[in-house]
């Protein structure tokens, strides 16, 4: 054991329950991402264009400009559908966890900013009205917590890389 990296020692600092709950958190977030991606891939009519065109708040014009051309819409739709799916799979597997978590946090930040639940900003129907904190922000916070924990090395394929 002594010849191996300090990871083994680090992992020993977590109790079994802690290890399980950290992995559980990562897997449920992965599941959520995978489903959102899967739904978009399996629908023949889904496009992000309508949502982005109607984005309220101070970043609304920025999101609107992202879908100003048909080619941009095509790229964004593909990035959304495949990106969510891939991030979901990686999080469930615990493979390239850090990169996947970074991308996940970026996605969630974009979702948050495209429909920010800030006082005075008109909220979009469907999500309901929140005050500053909404589900996107909570999920992003959870992703950031995972980012500072070696969750892929606890239960996940990253364990294989970390040890060899």
């Amino acid at each position: 054991m002594a010849d191996k990296s300090g990871l083994g020692e680090t992992l020993k600092n977590y109790s079994g329950v802690q290890t399980f709950l950290i992995a559980f958190l990562r897997v449920v977030i992965g599941w959520h991402f995978l489903y959102e991606g899967y739904v978009k891939l399996s629908s023949d009519a889904w496009s992000a264009a309508g949502y982005l065109r109607a984005a309220p708040g101070p970043f609304g014009p920025m999101f609107e400009s992202m879908v100003s051309s048909a080619s941009m819409v095509g790229v964004i739709d593909a990035v959304m559908a495949w990106g969510l799916t891939l991030v979901g799979i990686l999080l469930i597997l615990g493979l390239f966890t850090r990169s996947a978590l970074l991308v996940a946090a970026l996605f969630l930040l974009m979702f948050y900013l495209s429909n920010p639940p800030w006082v005075g900003v008109q909220f979009m129907p469907g999500e309901g009205s929140y005050m500053v904190v909404n589900k996107n922000l909570v999920e992003m916070a959870a992703v950031l917590v995972l980012l500072v924990l070696p969750s892929g090395a606890m239960w996940g394929f990253d364990r294989l890389f970390a040890r060899r």
Binding site: S47, A49, P125, G126
Partner: peptide
Amino acid sequence: LTSATAAWSLSKGLLYTYRGGRR
């Protein structure tokens, strides 16, 4: 219906104008 995003686009009829990004 699946996600809130899809529901919202549906209610605004935007899925139809832009299909696969094409008007």
